[in-house]
C-alpha cells in the first residue's frame, strides 16, 4: 500500500519538528536550512504516497480519518513552502510543527483504503473533499500566523521582549500573510461547501446534517473576516482574534463533529 512512504515522510517531519522546536527554544534561525531539507524530502515522499493511493483506489486519498489527516498535513506543508518563498520569510518551522502534529494523529487511524458507497463515489465528491481540506489547511495556517501576529504585536506594544519575537517576521508581513490565507482559503471553502451541499441534496433531498450546519456557521464567520479584511479599515488585531476563533470552530468541525455525531461524514 506504499505505507513505507508515509512512515518515511512522518519520520522526516518528526526530525524537522524537533529541529524547529529546538530553534524556537534557542531563539535562533540557524537550523532553518536543515528544517527546509528535511521537510522538502519528507514532502516529496509524502506526495508519492498520496499519488500511489490515488492510483490504487481511483479516488482522492482524503476520505478516511488517516487519509484526511495525511492530506491535511500535506496541504499545510505545501502552503508553508509557498509562503516561505513568496514572502522570503523564515516561517517553515511553524508549518512543519503543525504538519507533523496532524500527520502524527493520522498515523493512529487504520490505513486501509476506504470504500465509498457507489452512489457517493464521484468526481464531485473528490472535488468537495480536496477543496474543503485545502481550505481548512489555509485557515489553520491563518490561525498560526494570527497567533504569531498577536505575540509580536503584544511584545511591541507592551515593550517587553523575550527574544522569541526576533525569529518572527514583522507585523506588516504577518498581517499580509494572514490576509492572503483568508483571501484564498475562503473561496476554496465556499466552493467545497456548495459542491458538497448540492451533492447531498441530490442524494437525500433537503435535510440537515450536523456537519452541514456547523460548516455553515464557520462559513459565516469566515465571510465576516473576509468582508472586514477586504474593507481596509478593519483593525488588524481584531481580525487576528477573529481568525483564531474561526479556526477553533473549523477544527471542531473537522475532528469533533466527524467523531461525535452520527453524521454523513462519519469517518470511513
Amino acid at each position: 500500500m506504499g505505507t513505507i512512504f508515509f512512515e518515511l515522510a512522518l519520520t522526516l517531519y518528526f526530525a524537522g519538528f524537533i529541529l524547529s522546536i529546538v530553534g524556537i527554544i534557542r531563539k535562533k534561525n540557524d537550523l532553518d536550512k536543515a528544517v527546509f531539507f528535511l521537510s522538502l524530502i519528507g514532502f516529496i515522499l509524502h506526495t508519492v504516497y498520496l499519488i500511489i493511493r490515488y492510483i490504487k483506489s481511483g479516488q482522492a486519498p482524503v476520505f478516511s480519518m488517516h487519509e484526511a489527516n495525511s492530506y491535511f498535513a500535506w496541504s499545510i506543508l505545501l502552503v508553508s513552502f509557498l509562503i516561505s518563498f513568496s514572502y522570503k520569510v523564515k516561517v517553515l518551522n511553524f508549518g512543519i510543527i503543525l504538519s507533523f502534529l496532524i500527520m502524527f494523529i493520522g498515523a493512529f487511524f487504520p490505513r486501509g483504503i476506504p470504500s465509498l458507497k457507489p452512489e457517493i463515489k464521484s468526481f464531485w465528491i473528490d472535488i468537495h473533499a480536496v477543496m474543503a481540506i485545502f481550505g481548512i489547511a489555509l485557515f489553520s495556517l491563518a490561525f498560526v500566523f494570527s497567533s504569531l501576529y498577536l505575540i509580536q504585536e503584544k511584545a511591541i506594544k507592551s515593550k517587553k521582549f523575550r527574544g522569541f519575537e526576533s525569529i518572527l517576521p514583522n507585523l506588516e508581513i504577518l498581517d499580509k500573510i494572514n490576509y492572503h490565507l483568508i483571501f484564498w482559503g475562503f473561496p476554496l471553502y465556499t466552493i467545497a461547501l456548495v459542491v458538497g451541499f448540492i451533492k447531498y441534496v441530490s442524494l437525500v433531498g433537503f435535510m440537515f446534517d450536523p456537519k452541514e450546519i456547523w460548516s455553515f456557521l464557520t462559513w459565516i464567520v469566515y465571510l465576516s473576516i473576509y468582508y472586514l479584511r477586504v474593507k481596509e479599515d478593519w483593525r488588524k488585531k481584531k481580525a487576528a482574534y477573529l481568525t483564531i476563533l474561526a479556526f477553533l470552530l473549523v477544527i471542531f468541525g473537522f475532528f469533533g463533529i466527524n467523531l461525535l455525531t452520527e453524521s454523513f461524514h462519519k469517518p470511513l
Binding site: 531563539k27 535562533k28 509580536q152 527574544g163 519575537e165 526576533s166 514583522n170 507585523l171 506588516e172
Partner: peptide, 22 residues
C-alpha cells in the same frame, strides 16, 4: 546571539520600526 540586538538608542529605534514595517 551576541551581536544580534542593537545596543544604541538610535539603532534600537530602527530595530523596533523594522519589527512593525516590512
Amino acid at each position: 546571539r551576541i551581536s544580534e540586538n542593537p545596543v544604541s538608542v538610535s539603532y534600537a529605534a530602527v530595530g523596533l520600526i523594522r519589527k512593525v514595517f516590512d
